[in-house]
Amino acid sequence: MFEARLTQGALLKRLLDSVKELVTDANFDCSETGISLQAMDNSHVALVSLSLRAEGFNPYRCDRGFSLGVNLNSLNKIMKCAGNEDVITLKADDSSADSLCLLFENSSNERVSEYELKLMDIDQEHLSIPETDYDATVMMPSAEFQRICRDLMVVSESVTIDVSKDEIKFTAEGELGTGNVKLKPTSTIDKPEESITIELGQTVSLQFSLKYLSNFTRGTPLSDQVMLCLSDNMPLLVEYKMDIGYIRYYLAPKVGD
């Protein structure tokens, strides 16, 4: 038997909203430690890795590890039927899971709705993501990163990210001209969510597709801060951390010029 009850149902709605554009079908791997998902987009340029710890659900029950093959589009449609304040419970019979039951209860428990999502067999290979000691790790307000991606997209579909000890610089060059945004580390003690920090092993400069980065910023509502990890000739890691776990996006770099 699998059962996972999340009092903050809105979190699940936002999580699904943050992956729906990138991935169409995915396996939710359920185990006693929690729920995880790893999936690449169709072009194998970007990968999303989601992890929700069992402790974040109450109750959480998963008698044996199994996978729920989900069409994220369909799941999103059903999630739209949940209120932002609803408690959401996921249930499945882990021996012959051919459907996922979703229960939405409003706070006063007067309104309970139940949906069954048909599951699919998804044969998806998992990639092993090497532990990387990144050249640069940048923490910044997630809204700031979202704005930079949106603003620089008016100039070009690519952005070069340069990180040095005391600056992260985003540069875009296109037909209409160029644009760049430079951020310096700040440490606002009273408002940690607005701080910008740079941990630097060595300077790094990489180019990425802004289309994908903008897509990743759908994770902005999940966390006040976003972490960017860069290493020369390695995919970028963009992470939004939550109490219950994290959502990580990896993006392969653009090379040559």
Partner: peptide, 14 residues
């Protein structure tokens, strides 16, 4: 013109 790489060049299947 810069070229987009693929994740398969960096992450190997398990």
């Amino acid at each position: 013109m810069s070229k987009q790489t693929k994740l398969g060049a960096f992450f190997k299947p398990k």
